[in-house]
Simulated assay, not measured.
Amino acid sequence: MTLAAVIAASTSPAAPVGDAARGAEVFRQCAACHEVGPQARDRIGPHLNGLFGRPAASHDGYRYSESMARAGDDGLIWTDDTLSAYIENPRALVSRTRMSFAGLPDAQARADLLAHLRRFSDNPSDIPEAEPTARGTDHDLDPAILALVGDPEYGEYLSSECVSCHQADGSAQGIPSITGWPTEDFVAAMHAYKARLRPHPVMQMMAGRLSDEEIAALAAYFKDL
């Protein structure tokens, strides 16, 4: 599955309902870094108890990456939709996350895994918007978006608003650098803002004003800046 399908897979009305027993088997792929359950402890990654409904990077005592901490500060909450997008391709939701997991492309396997993890949240049935059968229905991203070849000159023309916050020289002064990003990462991130999976309100507004061609042009410009 392509990066552009991250949002469609996690928000499609046909997304499968998970089986927790099968999800326990899928969790073996996560167990090298994470634990979940009554005796769970932090390992390479934080333990995953109480995950649903929790802000990103909010587990006390664990040292998160700057990218994950920033996502939490922006308001990212772990729900079915956001967790599915993150598990399918971590970088599509949190750029430069240090989680080395390559991603889980199978939608049923992700649903099973989330059903398993949900059993270890405090009150899963009371989590807003995230009951076991909840699925978003308001977005359908065309995978062909990644096939668009952006015009870097047009991207430079469009970039004035971007560089009013992001440093053109690639430095990060409280705001992450977007210079030198791979085009697929840039496009996937912008469409995650458009879909309101990435929570930053200013970026949601900015991305919402851009066409697919304009996003591709910006991605082409910043890649080689």
Rank of each mutant, 00 (worst) to 15 (best):
V17S: 04
Q173P: 02
S12N: 11
S159I: 05
F27T: 01
A32W: 05
D112T: 02
G155T: 06
A40L: 07
A192D: 09
V187P: 07
D212Q: 13
H166S: 06
R70V: 03
E25W: 01
A130S: 14
L141Y: 13
P132D: 10
D106V: 12
I87A: 07
R198C: 04
Q39E: 14
I215C: 01
P128I: 00
Q167M: 04
T11A: 13
A147W: 11
A14H: 12
A130I: 00
L3S: 04
L146I: 12
P13H: 14
K194H: 15
D73A: 15
W78N: 04
P124E: 11
R70K: 13
R98F: 02
A9S: 11
L83D: 08
G72F: 04
D60T: 10
H191V: 08
S95F: 02
S211M: 14
M1S: 08
G103D: 09
A147Y: 10
D112F: 02
L117M: 07
T79H: 12
D224C: 00
Q29S: 08
T97K: 14
R22L: 10
A134R: 01
R22Y: 02
G23C: 13
D19M: 06
D212V: 05
A8V: 04
A219E: 03
A217S: 15
G72P: 05
E66D: 07
H139E: 01
R98G: 00
A115P: 03
L146H: 12
D74K: 03
E66Y: 00
S160Y: 10
E161C: 09
M99V: 10
D224E: 14
V202G: 10
L51F: 03
A92Q: 02
R118A: 11
E153T: 11
S125A: 14
F120Y: 15
P90S: 12
R196Y: 01
G53I: 04
